[in-house]
Design a binder for these strands. Structure first.
Lengths: 194, 194
DNA sequence: GCTTTTCTTGATTATATGTTCAATAATTAT
DNA sequence: ATAATTATTGAACATATAATCAAGAAAAGC
């Protein structure tokens, strides 16, 4: 007997993701969210509780779409190293003129919110843990394939995670492709067997 | 004939730096600043114009103290590579329980503000440019000293800058020293002549 | 077709925010 | 001492913000 929701929740959250991604949590007002989600306050509050609840939903959705795709890219190549390379190559292009012009929603959340909201910090930890695990598997696979330098193993995943965060920060300074290439080539060269 | 200012401007700004550093720009209210600076609204507005003006002053002060110290560390060692190592070693300790528990004011400003305030973006660019230049000099010196791998030169400065930004992000997730060491050791190992 | 339940609408509210300002106090030059 | 100038104080202000809510609308079960 209930009236059905008129809007598609996932579409609405996707728009919230875009807005939070670009302007940050404190930087986006309910006004901006009403506009980008094309919804009235009441509908937003009925569906998500409050602004923070919406942000939490946006993080989940981001992790479920953007991050999932990234992780699949890392693991879905013809070799361990190829997956890592494919991911960073994709990232460079996305920073230059794709979805990652504004860095990464999670990286932004780390610097803005990790130390003031434990629930958000926990979500961040889960996400970073998954990316780390993806790098670990790819490295383990690369080692089994015999393509890693002798002193390189799965424990280098945190190093790749660090470079990734650095790229997501630098993305916000609109660096030329040349700079991003230099960074990625250097970072990945240290893994190869020589 | 004028009455003299009772507070020391630099001390006041130092306290504002701490507050902005820890909570971000939007995350700190004038309330917080009044408390941490131990000043009344009127005095703050008379001295700095507005909140944004105070943040600009805080960035300048940060660059003049914290960043200056960092850059001196990079350039002030007995060899090019030693300077780079000394800097990252210092950073690890500062992240664990020193001043850098909250990352870096500039890194935080990049993710929060670089894309919505051109004047702040310009200050960020100047700062990052100086750090990059410090890395460049150290690398050039290391090359002259014959301690770099054959394919490594001053152009790798952007790579070090990226790792640095990544560390400043991860700092906010309270990583154990072991992880930070793994990252730094890996990042710097790729520079050495083997 | 009526009832029940839920959703939508958008004006309204409470609060928090950055900012101002008039009164007061302090300092120095004359 | 007095005048002139500037700093300090803290209450008040305007605004913007997140959040609420009562009225109307829509859908499904009986």
């Amino acid at each position: 007997m209930p009236r059905l929701r008129e809007f598609d929740t996932n579409v609405a959250i996707d728009r919230a993701v875009e807005t939070f991604w670009q302007h940050g949590y404190d930087g986006t007002g309910m006004q901006d969210l009403r506009a980008s989600m094309d919804l009235h306050s009441g509908s937003i509050y009925a569906a998500f509780g409050d602004k923070r609840g919406l942000f939490l939903a946006a993080m989940d959705r981001y992790i479920d779409t953007v991050s999932r795709e990234a992780i699949e890219r890392i693991g879905g190549a013809s070799s361990g190293l190829a997956g890592i390379r494919a991911y960073f190559d994709y990232l460079i292009e996305a920073i230059i003129d794709g979805k990652r012009r504004w860095g990464c929603l999670i990286t932004n959340a780390v610097t803005e919110l990790a130390q003031r909201d434990p629930e958000i910090a926990a979500k961040i930890a889960v996400h970073l843990g998954r990316v780390d695990a993806a790098f670990q598997s790819a490295l383990a696979r690369a080692r089994a394939e015999g393509s890693l330098a002798k002193d390189v193993g799965p424990e280098k995943s945190v190093y790749l995670l660090c470079v990734l965060q650095g790229l997501n920060v630098l993305a916000k300074t609109q660096p030329p492709r040349k700079v991003l290439r230099e960074i990625v080539d250097t970072a990945l060269a240290s893994l190869d067997r020589r």
